[in-house]
Computed example of a mutant assay.
Amino acid sequence: MPGYWRSAVQKILALSESPQRVALGVALGLALDFLPVPVISIPLAYLLARILRFSPAAAVVTVVFFKWAVPLFFTLDYMVGRLLLGAGAASGQPVWQGMPNTGHLHPQYWLNWLGHLGRPFILGAVLNASLVFILSYALTYRFLKCRQRSKPRKKLRLSPHRPNPVNHKARL
């Protein structure tokens, strides 16, 4: 995993776009992984980033990198939604015990599961995606700005064999 992490971070840091666009792309990609759009999240990240003028590369790299965590994100979405709607609190059972068995990988099972979860899952997904977008944008932007400031800037020097570009005769 560390090599995978390093590779993703290096790809994002190598982008020549502004820190704001890159941070917005990262935030968009991470937020999309919290929403129930698992099949189309990669092209959706690219298209939304292009439309909103975020960094498409940063959005796609982030969506792809965090695919391994989507089941965890979906579980968190459901738990947050149930907590906000009060489900589970009244019955006295822990929130995760109310989740259906997620052992099947058939797409129809997941569609039925999403239909069963309904409001708690969608509410948690929208809330978590919004919070993650804001937090990941702020943290990524701050990191990129600090990194940009710490990099030494190259000084622009005129070489001795080139004449000065200012035309002195034009001023006289």
Rank of each mutant, 00 (worst) to 15 (best):
W5H: 05
R6P: 06
R6Y: 07
S7V: 00
V9Q: 00
K11Y: 02
L13K: 08
L15C: 00
S16W: 00
S18P: 05
S18E: 05
P19V: 08
A23P: 07
L24R: 06
G25M: 04
L28E: 00
L28C: 03
G29S: 03
G29H: 00
L30F: 00
L32M: 09
V37Q: 03
I40D: 06
I42H: 03
Y46I: 02
L47E: 10
L48V: 15
L52M: 06
L52I: 01
F54G: 10
P56W: 03
A57F: 07
A69M: 06
D77V: 03
M79V: 09
R82E: 14
L83P: 08
L84Y: 02
L85Y: 13
G86A: 05
A87Q: 15
A87C: 10
G92S: 11
Q93G: 12
P94A: 15
M99T: 04
M99F: 15
P100Q: 08
L105H: 09
P107F: 04
Q108H: 13
Q108V: 15
Y109I: 11
W110F: 07
W113P: 09
L114A: 11
L117C: 12
A125K: 03
A129P: 01
S130P: 03
F133A: 05
S136A: 04
A138C: 06
R142C: 10
F143I: 03
S150M: 14
K151V: 10
R153S: 01
R162Q: 10
V166H: 03
V166N: 01
K169M: 02
